[in-house]
Design a protein around this nucleic acid. Structure first.
Lengths: 346, 346
DNA sequence: CTCAAAATGAGTTGCGTACCTCAAAATGCC
DNA sequence: GGCATTTTGAGGTACGCAACTCATTTTGAG
């Protein structure tokens, strides 16, 4: 058999022999346990690298006994996007239990820094990994760093805290998302000149601010014939978004494009239809039951989407890989900016 | 601890006790081995379902000893898309070896049914799973079915053979891809009326034919102001595509859109630039080094992409899940139709 | 040189399953 | 009822690693 030559699947025992030490010492090095001379550590590490040794994941998992626990810290309240993430985690339950993984959802007020920080602190030590939809705030950052210090693996989900020492961010580049929205509004509006309205939840939210930044960037540089109206802050609420927009439509007859940065989509759509502005190019975010319907009806022209299922699964996989000390498949875990139009609705 | 109540992580031993049989019998049932009375099988199955028992993946993997072998049967010759798939498999190598998986690439002439069929037959018995870029032909179908009969798990990759008994198809819905291309050309062309050109490799290829079908469908129903020119068959070759297109441009001054269904993109772009048709809306497929450049330059307006990295990984995961008898995460393995424009280039 | 501390070796156990053997029990057939 | 056949039980081994104990050796400080 030619295959046998290729690789005989080394084990820890082989590494021990190679390095001229015992199994116990290899084990100590592998798990960064104390009591090994630096020189010996080096010899063992070399043997591992020389042979490109990879511990057998299955064996390691089986041997460690206790199940791994992961926590998802998510916003409380009825947020459809977050509900989707929960739903996808539910669909994974067989996959999770076959690997003896326990995933717990922890609802909290992620918009209150102190509450969020307290929730995170409370997890300390109990979990192998934590995924958190985080607000970028010093208190939250400190809480994340504390978690990391206790050995818990932390990924930020959807919204990042780049200044923290979180191990990974699972979510999209919101500036690029805004740019994409801008390109779509500009291109789909054709050569027409006119005004473009923007509705956001709040410019204080990091992701919204970044999207607006990207959007204006593209509009300014590539679509000079379109002028931007001041950003409306709808607080992601349907009613408020509708009122603000209706008032705006009353004042401007030549609106050709509309970018809805956050939620409140229902209100935006209502304002559009009641003002009879069917021809306005309407670009928003996320594929939900609502936006799906609006796309099919032709009310919305495109949705920028970050696949929530992918985010949920990526968060789990990344936390698991981190906990196991495996490399992360960056390409796989990267969340792409999906452009969803009627004909490629997932 | 409240958690202990939730689930004590059942093992086969627990199932055996529940069903009132020995471990050996449970094992026989689990692996469909003979020598168990139907009545007993039922009792064991019930115990398994009643407790929602899931075999511990790690333990199973460790116990079976021998590594799993997967084969990827891919077109020979310099196909950038296929090279990308290979590259992504390479990036997974650490992941693969940590799970003691061996993946082999097998290059063959996938466009010759008998050659492809022979290649497939040759794999019989040696592999746990096979991913194949398949031509839809009776001989190929038979070869696939034979493989399936020997217990090998088979997925079709990129191009499907729906009439075969393959376990799964990893690739996009090409009709929907064509529809998406149509919607993009139509929308990006603005309200302008004019003609739209189509360049394909060959209408005999299933995926190309399906894309054209979807494309024409959308154009006819939604953009009546645009008229389609007859499909040019460029055989996915740069030179030929360029010549055909250049001739077409000579005859029609009012071409506003262009859909390149397959490869030969270099030639298409050249024809466009040499004819000075910068304003023609150009939509094609796949993100390669070339199309990336064309998108950035503004020559191409959008690319319909099926993430090759995702396809490679999905094929591996699906084959693995099939071999282990695990459920497939359909949502995860579904290949999405990505719309890639300059600002959301991955 | 002496002694405590640090480093290392040798060994064991257990994780949950696959796969195997052999004997014992149950069953069906004549 | 006796027999062959089928079904079942009991038990063992192996997989590769984690995690531990305990004895032994080496090291460095005084």
């Amino acid at each position: 058999m030619a295959e046998e030559i290729v690789s005989a699947a080394l084990t820890l025992k082989d590494i021990a022999r190679e390095a001229g030490v015992s199994l116990a010492t290899v084990d100590r090095v592998l798990h960064n346990r104390p009591g090994v001379r630096p020189d010996t550590v080096r010899r063992v590490r070399q043997a591992i690298e020389r042979n490109a040794f990879q511990p057998h994941v299955a064996a390691a998992e089986l041997a460690r006994g206790r199940a791994r626990r992961l926590a998802f810290v998510m916003p409380s309240g009825p947020n459809p996007f977050m509900q989707q993430i929960e739903a996808y985690l539910g669909e994974m339950s067989a996959w999770l239990s076959a690997r003896r993984l326990k995933v717990e959802m922890i609802a909290t007020d992620v918009f209150d820094p102190s509450v969020l920080a307290a929730s995170l602190e409370a997890l300390s030590g109990d979990y192998d990994g934590v995924a958190v939809v985080a607000l970028d705030h010093p208190g939250v950052r400190a809480a994340i760093d504390d978690l990391v210090d206790t050995g818990t693996k932390v990924v930020t989900l959807v919204s990042d805290v780049p200044s923290s020492r979180r191990h990974h961010y699972v979510g999209i580049d919101n500036i690029a998302a805004g740019r994409t929205a801008g390109a779509l509004v500009g291109r789909l509006a054709g050569q027409k000149s006119g005004k473009v309205a923007i509705v956001a939840g709040s410019q204080g939210l990091r992701d919204h601010a970044e999207r607006i930044f990207g959007f204006t960037q593209v509009m300014a540089s590539e679509f000079p014939e379109l002028s931007l109206l001041p950003v409306l802050e709808g607080r992601d609420e349907d009613d408020r978004s509708e009122q603000l927009l209706t008032r705006l439509f009353g004042r401007h007859a030549d609106i050709v494009g509309l970018y809805n940065v956050g939620a409140g989509t229902q209100g935006v759509a209502k304002a559009l239809s009641e003002a009879g502005r069917d021809k306005v190019v309407f670009v928003g975010h996320d594929v939900t039951a609502l936006t799906r319907r609006l796309l099919l009806q032709g009310v919305m022209d495109a949705a920028i989407s970050q696949n929530p299922g992918h985010e949920a699964r990526a968060a789990v996989r990344v936390l698991l890989a981190l906990a196991r000390g495996e490399p992360i498949l960056r390409e796989q875990e990267k969340i792409r900016i999906d452009i969803v139009m009627r004909d490629n609705l997932p």
